[in-house]
């Protein structure tokens, strides 16, 4: 299962990177989102999968899955959301101000 997940993460990273490298702003935002998902999955995978029950003490289970990656990912999800929101609004503003969403046209002047 871990190996499969890692391969899935690799595919997601590839697709995300490809999108980030494209010229259109919206695609870049989509790419960032996908890479974010991939990283979250990677972190959760690194703690070992399906090794015990959910980390709730009330369950009286024999063993729990590793809680640390979960705590990390929980933080990451929220921060990801904040980043996506800001980048999206930034794209919107850039498009409103400059009338283009092409990165090649948005680049700075040669001698600034």
């Amino acid at each position: 299962m871990e190996t499969l997940m890692v391969i899935l993460v690799g595919i997601l990273v590839s697709i995300g990177t490809y999108l980030i490298l494209s010229k259109q702003l919206l695609r870049i935002v989509l790419g960032i989102s996908i890479v974010g998902h991939a990283v979250n999955l990677l972190i959760i995978t690194s703690g070992g999968l399906k090794t015990g029950s959910a980390p709730l003490l009330g369950e009286k289970a024999a063993g729990f899955t590793d809680a640390i990656p979960q705590a990390l990912v929980l933080t990451a999800i929220v921060i990801n959301f904040a980043v996506t929101a800001v980048v999206l609004v930034l794209c919107y503003r850039a498009y409103q101000s400059f009338g283009t969403d092409d990165m090649e046209q948005l680049r700075g002047d040669e001698h600034e």
Partner: peptide, 8 residues
């Protein structure tokens, strides 16, 4: 859900 992480 599958990975036993209900909060996530």
């Amino acid at each position: 859900v599958i990975f036993r992480a209900p909060d996530l």
